[in-house]
């Protein structure tokens, strides 16, 4: 009985930690996407001018 209960708790904890790890990895990907979109796509003129050469050189649509 006791062993079974312990086993269930372990599985649940493992499930939770796997889920939070997946969430954390997704968060990294989302932040990465955010960086690429702000640096590559945002049309605010200061940002556009600052990133201008890089956008052209890395093939982003620029103007």
């Amino acid at each position: 009985m006791t062993t079974q209960a312990l086993g269930q708790t372990d599985t649940r904890t493992l499930g939770q930690s796997a889920r939070s790890e997946i969430a954390a990895i997704f968060a990294v990907a989302l932040i990465g996407l955010g960086i690429v979109f702000v640096a590559g796509h945002a049309q605010a003129s200061a940002l556009h001018d600052a990133a201008h050469d890089v956008r052209h050189a890395t093939g982003f649509p620029c103007h």
Binding site: A39, G40, V54
Partner: peptide, 9 residues
């Protein structure tokens, strides 16, 4: 910055 963004994805 852009390559760090690419790297994160």
């Amino acid at each position: 910055l852009i390559y760090t963004g690419y790297a994160m994805v």
